[in-house]
Write a protein that binds this DNA or RNA. Structure first.
Lengths: 339, 339
DNA sequence: ATTCAAAATACAATCGATTGTATTTTGAAT
DNA sequence: ATTCAAAATACAATCGATTGTATTTTGAAT
């Protein structure tokens, strides 16, 4: 019993049945009588049978596996989404393969290829910051693999998305600062090839114009929004001729970097500069003062995206029209903006 | 070209070759002449061929896939380990399936079963807090699937491990507090069925005894070390008859929970109570005061564990003896213990 | 031109499960 | 006991790639 690879043929032989009957019994087919099912099931358990997923998938041309591509799993928002995805996927009998692009386009392409090789039934993804070219995604579609974006989507037709309203988020964050009395509000923006950062930026601009504040190009600091970027851009921000009294960062991590730097330079938050982040990462409650931010419902987004993907897979011939689901987001006010 | 599922037979037909030759050409076999290889490769690219990993794995009885089971991917330590695992695995041509037990024994068992069904070549894992029974792991071994533990291992013979010296870590953390002048040091301990928490606890006791301090049962607060546990146990800690002046928490998360609660109650850190955590999670640098902690080299552990697993897989018949690799850890001193 | 190893390629079986079709078994009706 | 649908099970092909064995092709030596 050293190498326990029992097949349906082994079970069939030991019961004097045909492997097809064993297969049907194990799959609870109506073509097999209950008594036989019981016998087969008992024998299978006794022999320690484990269905060979590879053989089954090959024959059925369906792996019951979903691929998930995120920029990095260590971001709390993405790991929440993954939890939601797993929950819905497992319930529906699907296995999930999680991959991280680490924000690198080349890694993303490689991952897409690997997932195709694994013959996943569908893919859920948030694109990397470097992704500007979508050919690798079109290949997926050509192979008949369904694709649903969440959060970081692509602005191309015929793909389904599960998003929040980033324009509204950016608008609310900025308006919140304005209502707190800020007049000179800076913005840490992300790569503008990503819709989400474009929309957050547009929300920022819209809030300014709604409240009669001028849009000043120098107040905008584009970066990849890492902690280090937040630090460096705060340095530049302090060097500006006209002083800043508010900051809307397109993510929490850069906001934290800014807070660490600014605090070390004696800048008082929120008195001198009020700050709002984006995503409600757990660190935003740990930093002092706690960071005001826009909450994104990660788990719910994961669930919704998976449900949508499974619907697409069910209508295999792509009969299902692509759709975009917008989830609720909301501003959480904390100390960093309490003027 | 709507459903692009090209097989080696399609390539063979269009080139008037046999599928076996095409297969050998694509696998760069010496039995095929270079000219033919070139022709086949060109045609494969032209037709958009993608090897069917399922069929290949089924035939070769090898999937080139590794399973990874962690308690939760959102813990920075685990996502670091995963990054290390992925790097080494991809280099060696392996795909990685990441799963999270969420600290639940039942989920862990289910995951092990799924991975067996997927016919992974090996598994890397850190067990859940609830895991006390190892039958599901023995089944893996029986199926000939190699298993290497990292961090949270099992104290059973014939398994390979990649660990840090948790006893030393616990000892150093506690001795550090003693050298800072603490006389009454509490300990937030984790589930004692896990070796790592047992060892950290033993390190704590050893440091006390080395420095002539009494071990006091009431100073030990066992829990699952979630943030909420840290909060609740700090409350109990403040209610002790003899006041505490130091705290060694077996992880950072519970330490953070304690810091938040204690600070809210007016306790000064480190003046009133000095605190040391464990794992060097990123939040430990964000909280104020920054948390002194024991650093675990996540990425390196992931790499080492994967290398070890691949070695085991190479010696398929289990010829390789199990071994335990101990990685370096070190104390990082920050404000929370600067008396 | 013929011979004959060596080189190159073709043939055919196989991995394990599934599934359409064919055959056997069952048991109610006569 | 016989008949005959319906029920249950067996037969055989298949998914796509791999691999041991058989056959064909090549080209150097004669």
């Amino acid at each position: 019993m050293q190498n326990n690879k029992v097949t349906i043929h082994d079970i069939a032989k030991s019961l004097n049945l045909d492997s097809s009957t064993v297969s049907r019994a194990l799959n609870d087919s109506p073509r097999v009588i209950q008594k036989t099912k019981d016998i087969v099931l008992a024998k299978a358990t006794e022999m320690g049978y484990q269905r060979n997923h590879l053989a089954s998938s090959l024959r059925k041309n369906k792996t019951n596996t979903l691929g998930v591509i995120v920029p990095r799993i260590s971001r709390h928002f993405f790991s929440s989404v993954i939890s939601g995805i797993e929950e819905t996927a497992y319930e529906a009998g699907y296995t999930v393969i999680i991959c991280q692009s680490l924000e690198q386009f080349n890694r993303e392409k490689k991952i897409v290829n690997t997932l195709m090789g694994q013959r996943v039934d569908g893919v859920l993804m948030s694109i990397s910051m470097e992704t500007k070219d979508y050919k690798h995604l079109e290949v997926l579609k050509k192979q008949g693999i369904q694709l649903v974006f969440f959060d970081r989507h692509c602005d191309i037709p015929n793909y389904s998305n599960v998003l929040i309203d980033d324009f509204k988020g950016g608008f609310e964050a900025t308006e919140h600062l304005i209502l707190k009395g800020c007049k000179n509000i800076a913005h840490f923006s992300g790569p503008q090839n990503l819709e989400i950062y474009k929309n957050r930026f547009n929300g920022y601009k819209h809030a300014l114009s709604k409240h009669g504040l001028p849009f000043i190009e120098e107040f905008v600091f584009p970066s990849k929004l890492m902690e280090e970027d937040g630090r460096k851009n705060s340095e530049k921000l302090l060097a500006l001729p006209n002083p800043i009294d508010g900051l809307f960062s397109a993510n929490d991590v850069a906001a934290i970097g800014a807070m660490k730097y600014l605090t070390s330079k004696g800048v008082k938050i929120p008195e001198d500069i009020a700050i709002v982040g984006f995503s409600n990462e757990p660190i935003s409650t740990v930093i002092n003062p706690a960071l005001t931010t826009i909450n994104q419902p990660g788990i719910e987004m994961g669930k919704a995206a998976t449900e949508l993907l499974l619907k697409h897979i069910a209508k295999e011939n792509g009969a299902l029209d692509s759709q975009t689901i917008i989830m609720d987001s909301n501003l959480i006010e904390r100390q960093s903006s309490k003027k």
